[in-house]
Design a protein around this nucleic acid. Structure first.
Ligand SMILES: [Mn+2]
Ligand SMILES: [Mn+2]
Ligand SMILES: [Zn+2]
Ligand SMILES: [Zn+2]
Lengths: 155, 155
DNA sequence: TAATTATTGCAACTCGGTTGCATTTTTGAT
DNA sequence: ATCAAAAATGCAACCGAGTTGCAATAATTA
């Protein structure tokens, strides 16, 4: 995919999500579109060096906005930093493999969820220590009471 | 389960894992054994208040040791703090639900992995935003080259 | 154009987690 | 019991991820 087509794709995505296309947002989104694997903020900033002057706060705010609008997915790790990847029909929900040694995160086949589980255990080249399934949303308690909101209110 | 039986259970677990049983380790392990859901470090420390003088560094080192010996599991979240729970045959690998509002983490049925997936989507009381499958271990690259180890060497 | 609103940068901060080092406790051999 | 070696703990200082308040700038809209 050429640089130009990535740029067009980013522009379209922003427009489609009703987000005004600023230089910073286009830059961040383009990085994620070109990425072959999930990226953390420090990596995003490194890839942005030279191309675009952008404060770290802006990167966080941009990613947060993208996530709320469903443009990107956030991936939890135990390493401290969260990772981000494009969320789209072409890049549907899939398992991730993260290496305990180098910390790199690889995307696994986006097969159907149940089908993926079987594959994870059989056909792979990784030595697996640990499998984690994290589901997030609203618990029944919090769904019923709109009052207490200790955590994240927005969305 | 009585306090005494929890204490005995903790003692047994330490002994079985070849970890010398100190007062701090027993205290931390007992907290996790009594817990009904995964706990983060700040919660563990709060539950420890009064019962046992323990530095935060010691809690982290203790949990790290437990994890390396397979006594506990570490659960990643996007919220910054990691969570910990007892890992045993009785408490086998299972999905987790984390509420976007209150941040609380609930353990879901430890059904077989593939079977669980179906249930997650159908029979539940949560409103689901996001499902995440994280698998960790060693990538092929890192398995073959024992040289470069940018991340976590130990285990 | 002028007023309004949205975006960005900067500084300062919070919080989770780590590291180095000195002190205390435990272990284990004599 | 005694003493030396090793392990566990606490303390302080630190690092990195992520957030908040606010002022400055850029983009919209009237
Ligand atoms: Mn992915
Ligand atoms: Mn659990
Ligand atoms: Zn690796
Ligand atoms: Zn909740």
């Amino acid at each position: 995919m050429s640089v130009n087509s990535t740029h067009k794709d980013a522009l379209f995505k922003l427009q489609h999500a009703g987000i005004s296309n600023t230089s910073r947002r286009l830059a961040v989104l383009s990085i994620l579109l070109k990425a072959k694997k999930p990226l953390n903020v420090s990596t995003i900033r490194r890839l942005l060096e030279g191309k675009c002057n952008i404060d770290k706060v802006t990167v966080y705010r941009t990613l947060s906005l993208f996530r709320k609008r469903g443009i990107i997915r956030e991936i939890a790790t135990t390493s401290g930093a969260n990772y981000f990847e494009i969320a789209s029909q072409e890049n549907s929900l899939h398992p991730h493999f993260s290496c305990r040694n180098c910390g790199e995160i690889t995307c696994l086949d986006p097969l159907s969820f149940t089908h993926a589980a079987k594959l994870i255990f059989s056909k792979h080249d990784y030595s697996i220590d640990h499998i984690e399934i994290n589901i997030s949303g609203l618990c029944t308690c919090c769904r019923n009471s709109s009052k207490k909101s200790f955590y994240k209110q927005e969305e």
